[in-house]
Write a protein that binds this DNA or RNA. Structure first.
Lengths: 168, 168
DNA sequence: TATTTATGATACAAGTATGTCTCACATATG
DNA sequence: CATATGTGAGACATACTTGTATCATAAATA
């Protein structure tokens, strides 16, 4: 519900969940608590889905490509945070997990730079921003039936590393 | 105010504008009217700023690069529409202007394909989405002091056409 | 100077959201 | 069977937001 409409009320959430509003408040003492738990869940799920990348020992560009492919189905859940993040960012736990994930991503970017698959002159922060923005854009394409999940991942990988210019 | 916090109340807007709430209602009969006028203003300003591109007779990639450079300072005003667009999209005038601008952008993309500076296999919708997403991302970098305006435009142009891979 | 106009402050009504509380009921457990 | 637990429905207080209306005042105009 909050992913579709971040301004949804507790009544809306309860109705969509098929439970009474009172019951919702029994599980989440406040709206802020609900949003934070949702954020935590998103971050947990990301950790879980991205674990195979680290386990497989992938590095640099190969790892980033795997991350993009794995993260695409989660983009929807991520996207809701854009407008609700202000409620979550004050939470210490959430911030810690988020910072760690961000650091891991930056590490992959640095590895890719070291192996020569990313231009060392490009700031890592921009790579991460551009990656994030394009994943969100690609998910939007999926949502509007203009891409399948795999097409979306492929488009992001290609655009990110090689751009939309003519193939070499 | 609405650019920073799209959920801001009329009181917030009036306070930031340094006028009374009543006066704000004298100029904009409703919150929706305010948002729509803001949207109209954004689109008008975009038209004005982008007019030189058409006047100079730029086409294809050169035109797209000029658009990116000119649009960057406007990105902030554009960005507020993401969450407020639902209030504006019902307005016939606004929709017409927006659709025209979008069509013009797609035309530039098609021209770039024809001249060989964009791979014909890449869907135009994805080019526009990726462009839009990266402009927003770059503006965010500017807002956080990680890019200057011109660095931002340069980064978007380079990432869009050539990606972040090593320079050929 | 007299008058019109725009403004700020404020009160007001109606609607909605949050968070708390109570009560009746169903279900699971002892 | 008796009891404990969780739920749904709803009342309730509080607060906030929208949109309207009123009134006194400052500034521009005639």
């Amino acid at each position: 519900m909050l992913a579709r409409n971040p301004a949804a009320s507790m009544t809306d959430v309860a109705n969509l969940a098929g439970v009474g509003r009172a019951t919702l408040y029994r599980h989440f003492p406040s709206r802020t608590a609900l949003v934070r738990e949702l954020a935590r869940e998103c971050l947990r799920r990301t950790d879980a889905d991205l674990a195979p990348v680290a386990d497989a020992g992938l590095r640099g560009r190969r790892a980033l490509e795997a991350v993009i492919q794995l993260i695409m189905p989660l983009a929807r859940q991520f996207h809701f945070l854009l407008s609700l993040w202000s409620y979550a960012e004050d939470d210490e736990d959430i911030r810690a997990i988020y910072d760690r994930q961000l650091t891991q991503l930056v590490t992959l970017v640095e590895e890719a730079k070291a192996e020569g698959s990313i231009d060392a002159a490009v700031p890592a922060a921009w790579v991460v921003s551009s990656l994030d923005a394009q994943v969100a854009a690609a998910w939007w394409m999926v949502g509007n039936g203009l891409f399948t999940d795999s097409e979306a991942a492929e488009a992001v990988i290609r655009s990110l590393f090689d751009g939309i210019g003519p193939r070499a």
